[in-house]
Nucleic acid binder design. Structure first.
Lengths: 254, 254
DNA sequence: AGAGATTTGTTCGTATGTATT
DNA sequence: TAATACATACGAACAAATCTC
């Protein structure tokens, strides 16, 4: 018989793992947890057993459970919080990447409250690549603006914008009064602009990015690099956005 | 003095780490390696010191070095290969997401050789969400095609396509003769189609995805979900693509 | 082709730090 | 303050993939 010879408080059927076969224990555990989440054994938002409990159930070291949990967190299935526990993941925001992409409009359209703050404004000389994209000469000054944008108070995007300083010198002052970049551009005589091209990649965040986005280091960020132009075709800015991949989904309509 | 009192073959300036401060050792190591890669100390494609060597240089356990390396791999800076070593990362393919997205055309435009093979063709009943997107009734049969697409022999995208079986029943036979989906569709009377909407997210790959894409588990995949329609506006297929994020960059032009 | 060395991958055990309750 | 739960770090051993001779 394969029955567990334990007393009444038998194990929650952790079940035996195939040891010494080709499959690492942590993978098997991740797989089972994934199945249990998909099948609803662990409901969305619900709490998962602690690492120690899982280690006990599967009869492995806690490290082995941790490896499995890290995997699931990276795949977006669970959220791990130090000192609190681990939880099954939820909810995503659709972020439309049309030519006219305005953060607050997009967020409001999804019945969420947009927000944001300027983290840093600085000035530097344009190096070759950036100068070319901005259509200015190398070494000319550019204004660099870092902004964290929120939806319902949760960090969603971390943006770094590069503006030619000659045209947008007033930007730093304007942003101090109102953190909306769109509003600041309007005040600079650019009532409208549109996205010309967007390049999208994904990678794990740097520690700072993870911190600012309040997201796990094991969770990827979507990285967009966009060039915005005004109606005259002049380049307004070159910007990089880092989206918490678990909370945002980019949408491209053709 | 803070000089190292060792002999001529002094340490490669591993330098001392700040122990017991707020910053984890593995983060400090990752940061230094990142700096060394950025500054060209380790050239792209070049080999990094072995884990054991780094552990020696920084005077930490090998696990600590491994944690740092995993971080860098996930961020796309290095590539780790079991039994071989670790290397500084390189090269990326631009994958344009226009309305007319054709794998082979995109790849050839970048002077690379497109390729691919059909992994699996099966039939199943459409569940609610899929049926709605395909514009058919729930439970009607759909053909599921899994295809691995390559550029210069390297896996780039793993695609799962869902076609309504009533209209595209001949697809399985056609794909057996030629793995090109575009060609098969043409043979089914769909000489042209275009992408209506694409949703993009990122996550870590499942073990199978990592295996098929020949990519590390710590490296994210870009996930696209697209709906293709024919000139009459009829839905041709709903497909999911998983791109090796280290080798591809999605480009959206507006 | 095979044997041994090298290098990364997995697992255990143990100890201590940090955040939350 | 104490207990709980996740995070970091060390040491040891063996497995798996690769390379070299």
């Amino acid at each position: 018989m394969t029955d567990d010879p334990n007393g009444p408080e038998a194990l929650p059927a952790g079940g035996l793992l195939a040891r010494g076969q080709g499959v690492a224990l942590w993978r098997q555990i991740a797989q089972r947890l994934e199945r249990d989440i998909a099948s609803g054994v662990h409901a969305p938002g619900g709490r998962l057993p602690t690492e120690a409990e899982l280690a006990g159930q599967y009869n492995v070291n806690r490290h082995t459970v941790r490896r499995a949990m890290e995997e699931l967190e990276g795949r977006g299935l669970v959220r791990i919080e130090q000192g609190r526990g681990s939880f099954v993941a939820e909810d995503v925001v659709d972020y439309s990447l049309g030519p006219r992409t305005r953060f607050s409009e997009i967020i409001r359209r999804q019945n969420r409250e947009p927000g944001g703050r300027i983290l840093r404004v600085s000035e530097m000389a344009a190096e070759t690549g950036l100068a070319e994209q901005l259509g200015i000469r190398r070494g000319r000054p550019v204004i660099v603006v870092e902004r964290l944008s929120l939806a319902d108070g949760r960090p969603l995007v971390l943006g770094t914008h590069h503006f030619p300083a000659t045209r947008f010198g007033r930007l730093p002052d304007l942003l101090r009064a109102d953190p909306s970049i769109t509003a600041a551009l309007t005040a600079c005589g650019v009532p409208d602009y549109r996205r010309r091209v967007t390049r999208i990649t994904a990678r794990l965040p740097t520690p700072e990015e993870a911190e600012l986005l309040q997201q796990s280091r094991n969770r990827p960020v979507l990285v967009t690099e966009a060039v915005n132009i005004d109606p005259a075709g002049e380049v307004v800015d070159v910007s990089t956005g880092r989206y918490a991949a678990g909370r945002a989904q980019l949408v491209v309509e053709s």
